[in-house]
Design a protein around this nucleic acid. Structure first.
Lengths: 219, 219
DNA sequence: CTGCAGCCTTCAGGCTGCTGTCAGCTTGGG
DNA sequence: CCCAAGCTGACAGCAGCCTGAAGGCTGCAG
């Protein structure tokens, strides 16, 4: 998943970014409203983490602008305990959830999961891929011989494919889900991870569509 | 599909042309507005890829002229990251989509695909050919014994035939759909691909009309 | 600090499947 | 029967894709 983090505090920012990255998410980090605008213009994020108090203005304005452009990316507002009015304003402006600072990183991860799940409209909490069971919500795989462990990146690729089952997903989109802007990765990383996924899931479900990308076949 | 590419940068142009060609599309490449006008006058493109900054004028003018002539060919605008105003102007002038440079070729392919789908969907989402199911949107075929894979060119031929079901399609038109102006292909390629298609689809649906062309019989 | 383990990225070699071409064959019409 | 048009199997060249292995990085335990 690709996350846009809008936060000016470097401590919180670093912590959030590292933690999300370790979960396999790509994090674009904006420290100002201006940067956030720029990012949201160029990048297709799956989720936005939005601090409301920023040096060059209120996050609410950014949020309203976003929704005005019909951008319905889910937004989680990060707010200090005493800024309740901000919070309400944020929710009215179109936020999906909020989190009170200081927050636990596990808590954040849980919210991210929850929002992603709601947004992805995964009606099925468990997806069957042949003899492998996928629980996206719990981030758990179970094969015929017990649990299967996936690394962060492996999971990110699988997740990206599962968001568009039966549809051709261009390699570039998977890359976008893996890497933030600025990380210059020039290699066949996606191919490598697809290869690893196939080894773990059984090769029959991830189909290569030459020149276009990959397709997840859910039987 | 037949694509008109309007782009003056030879690097981008070459890359786009080659990649689109590998998907079975025929690409006519104009490097100036004047050339683009000439092409759009002579050739019936299915899609136009339009860079806005060209040596002899703005692509927007070309676009407006096109729409003025009631030419509703879908247009994807290629724009530099910082030319946001251009982009808006382009969309207002009648573009269908835009892509920010530098873009990934897979992403471009996906957009082309999407536009084709949007356009083609006016007719039928799923087409039955005897015991074979065609999903043009997903570029997928399903036969009685499971999925059928088609290569780029094979798909292009099938697509061309499916656009005029029950009508005689001259060989020259299929050739036009496969190869751009100037590509000197001197062989019986069309016959070869029809043959390959028949082998995969079952031979009963593509009918040869001697001396005239081929006809797709949709039962 | 050192060694270890897991993860990520890169790279190169190999493999697969796509493509255009041709030659020999079949088909259909006059 | 003859000819033109069309069909199809074979093939070499090539691009895209796969995958094993190697090296770097980080975090952890001793």
């Amino acid at each position: 998943m690709r996350v846009l983090l809008v936060e000016d505090d470097p401590t919180i920012g670093n912590a959030v970014r590292d933690h999300a990255a370790s979960q396999g998410h790509a994090v674009d980090w904006a420290t100002t409203i201006a940067q956030a605008d720029a990012f949201s213009d160029v990048v297709d994020s799956d989720l936005i983490l939005l601090d409301l108090q920023l040096p060059d203005g209120s996050g609410v304005a950014f949020l309203k602008r976003l929704r005005g452009r019909r951008n319905m990316t889910p937004v989680i507002v990060l707010t200090a305990r005493d800024q309740i009015s901000d919070r309400i304003e944020g929710l009215n402006a179109g936020a999906d959830d909020y989190l009170v600072k200081p927050f636990d990183l596990g808590e954040l991860a849980a919210r991210i999961h929850a929002v992603a799940r709601r947004y992805g409209q995964r009606t099925t909490p468990i997806i069957q891929l042949g003899d492998v069971e996928v629980e996206p919500a719990e981030r758990r795989l179970t094969g015929p011989h017990g649990a299967i462990d996936l690394s962060g990146r492996e999971w990110a690729v699988l997740d990206c494919l599962l968001r568009h089952p039966g549809t051709i997903v261009p390699k570039s989109r998977i890359e976008d889900a893996l890497y933030a802007l600025g990380s210059e990765v020039q290699s066949n990383t996606v191919e490598v991870y697809v290869s690893r996924l196939r080894k773990k899931l059984g090769s029959s479900h991830v189909v290569t569509v030459r020149g276009l990308g990959y397709r997840m076949d859910v039987a």
